[in-house]
Design a protein around this nucleic acid. Sequence first.
DNA 1: TTGTAAGCGTTATCAG
DNA 2: CTGATAACGCTTACAA
Lengths: 342, 342
Amino acid sequence: MAEDKEITIYDIARHLNISATTVSRGLKDHPTINKNTRKKIAEAARFLGYRSNTFASSLRSKKTYTLGVIVPRLNSYFMSSVLAGMEKAANQEQYNLIISQSLESTEKEIANANTMFNKRVDGLLVSLSYDSRDIDHFAPFFKKGIPVVFFDRIYPNNESTSVVIDNYKAAYEVTKHLIDQGCRRIMHLGGNRLRNVYADRIRGYRQALKDHQISLDEKKFLYISKLNEEAGTQAAEYILGMSKKPDAVFAANDTTAVYCMIKLKEAGIRIPDDIAFAGFNNDPISKIIEPNLTTVNYSGYEVGQASINSIISHLSGTTNIRSTNMIVLRSDLIIRDSSLKK
Amino acid sequence: MAEDKEITIYDIARHLNISATTVSRGLKDHPTINKNTRKKIAEAARFLGYRSNTFASSLRSKKTYTLGVIVPRLNSYFMSSVLAGMEKAANQEQYNLIISQSLESTEKEIANANTMFNKRVDGLLVSLSYDSRDIDHFAPFFKKGIPVVFFDRIYPNNESTSVVIDNYKAAYEVTKHLIDQGCRRIMHLGGNRLRNVYADRIRGYRQALKDHQISLDEKKFLYISKLNEEAGTQAAEYILGMSKKPDAVFAANDTTAVYCMIKLKEAGIRIPDDIAFAGFNNDPISKIIEPNLTTVNYSGYEVGQASINSIISHLSGTTNIRSTNMIVLRSDLIIRDSSLKK
DNA sequence: TTGTAAGCGTTATCAG
DNA sequence: CTGATAACGCTTACAA
């Protein structure tokens, strides 16, 4: 078991016949410490096997160098890319990440927020669950001045920064691309309008149609779902049951698009000839499905990095979180065979 | 800003005219506290807006209720499933997760281990980077009696528990299945033998061939790579250059299998007729590629849960980590069209 | 450039 | 069942 006692700065101090204060300062490269003593301290620390005690430090300094992250699910391609980017950026600045998932449940999101609050994270990063209706559960953070950054699934407000892409514009471009390919009966497989990402994609889709004088019955051509595998399959069944079928489908994510395509292909529908397809996210599966899926590329990795950089620069006083309200990252339409009516 | 002062157990004590000790006990449902006072304490805590200070608590009790996780990469389907399972299980037991990635670099793995050590995690969960040659960097944990659990990419040793599947058996079954389909020239796309997962799959592949009196030139039929997209494509090019081609390919992961298939299909090779295919992991892409890929299903989610449960039960003294040396989870061969020579 | 001393908010120990 | 008191290991005024 743990035979050897923990070494503290006092042990180092005693060893060198100096004060603990000097050791504390020396260890964190305080400017007013003599170069020589600093070196001696570092050596003694190594020699004695010292490791700093973050609790004692946090208790005193009220800084934890820990950031909380709440995401709907960890295991999607997009989200794991975000987290990878976050971990990278945080690690570079000596911050650690406590990660939790809401599993798309508002209740669990609230519980997680409370845990993070109690764990006294220096900052919080959140992508909202599918149907959270407000952000009251983050009020304690706002009240205490703990920075909160929303990313991807955000909630418009003035207390925090949001990191997003221009979902409206991206969706507009996808829809316009389909129109340019000669499609006129374009269906949209969308998500819950409570979430900006899906609401904005719907808006972009609508506006593109409108700008090209295309009017469609939204009751038939706007299909809202959970955007998972089953939803894709169900959408396909819905389409197969339509008397007058769409000539294009634009799905709000790649998973839905791909599973819809698979089902339609089974039924003999030719893609893109009968129905052109476009998705969103540039998930790995979009490059595997045949024909390859036209989609919107948007780097989760960069979303993660930008979110962390924003919150850390706020914490170090470089920027004020209330001044930068929104960080918009670039996204690109990637045209592949699923939408090319040659 | 943070106007209101933090409430401490002393504030509660003063409020109720009792001692802080009693408050501390009452808050954590200590058995010797009167039911009534306990209720009063809980009420006062809520009323005053108390939140516990984990640092002060950790400082004193030397327990952090935090577990460290080091993985090669966050953003693979398998690993994000593992993390999802871990988060779920840890959260249930009031533990938090600090997650970091080694990015397949031994150096970074060492740095991460040190950080975790300094952060004084109660336990550590590790999946080794691609080419880490030893586990000396975890020695401080062993020495201090901090439990370490290895999962998936493990390192045989007596100081910790390992959570795995039977890679040997799974690979044996895959190979045998291909043999049963009439394949005789079976190629294996494997990974670095330093990692048990890949070494064991190679062993299983070899043994199955041997048991069926098939002898192949390993210089030609065993292709070791990093098992990523490029490696899959390169393997295909290698195969296309072979004078006598294999009639089956068994890849140590689905990514490699799928990208190899794509390239071969482009070159006119028919799958499974010319070359049958099998992968490993049951990644989502295995269900998208045409023909669907035969693979080994093995639940990352369960690996994550089992790892956490093991380490927590050790921490709570239920089990001793040295007694359970290995936890083997089930895996299943999933046969799909890519290997069925009808 | 270094030191003294107080205190961060809890829990362990001992006592009643 | 409850309380007094002393740590836990660090940081930070203030002093020298």
